[in-house]
Simulated scan of single mutants.
Amino acid sequence: MPVPEILVDADACPVKDEVYRVALRRGVPVTIVSNGPIRIPPHPLIGRVQVGAGFDAADDWIAERAGPAALVVTADILLADRCLKAGATVLAPNGKPFTTSSIGNAIAVRAIMADLRAGGDSIGGPPPFSKPDRSRFLSALDEALSRLARSLPAQPPAPV
Rank of each mutant, 00 (worst) to 15 (best):
V8R: 03
A10Q: 11
D11R: 04
C13S: 13
C13W: 06
V15D: 14
V19Y: 03
Y20E: 06
V22W: 00
A23N: 12
L24E: 10
R25W: 07
R25F: 05
R25S: 11
V30H: 03
V30P: 05
V33G: 05
S34R: 03
N35L: 12
G36P: 00
P37Y: 14
P37I: 10
I38Q: 08
R39K: 11
R39D: 15
R39Q: 13
P41S: 03
P42G: 09
H43R: 12
G47C: 09
V49E: 14
V49L: 03
V51T: 15
G52I: 07
A53T: 15
G54R: 03
A57F: 13
D59G: 14
I62S: 10
I62Y: 05
E64M: 09
R65H: 09
A69M: 03
T74E: 09
A75T: 06
A75K: 07
I77F: 11
I77R: 02
L78P: 11
A80S: 09
R82E: 15
R82A: 15
R82N: 13
C83A: 15
C83I: 09
L84M: 08
L84D: 01
L84Y: 10
A86G: 10
G87S: 11
A88D: 08
T89F: 08
T89L: 10
A92G: 12
A92F: 01
N94I: 06
G95C: 03
K96N: 11
P97C: 04
P97K: 00
P97W: 03
F98Y: 14
S101I: 02
N105V: 08
A106F: 12
A108I: 01
R110Q: 13
A111L: 12
M113W: 07
A114D: 10
G119E: 15
G119W: 09
G119K: 08
G120Q: 09
D121C: 05
S122D: 13
I123K: 00
I123L: 08
I123Y: 06
I123R: 02
G125D: 04
P126I: 00
P126G: 11
P126R: 04
P127R: 07
P128Y: 04
P128M: 00
S130I: 01
K131E: 15
P132T: 05
D133E: 05
D133Y: 06
S135E: 14
S135A: 13
R136I: 03
R136Q: 11
A140L: 01
A140I: 01
L141A: 02
L141C: 04
A144N: 02
A144G: 00
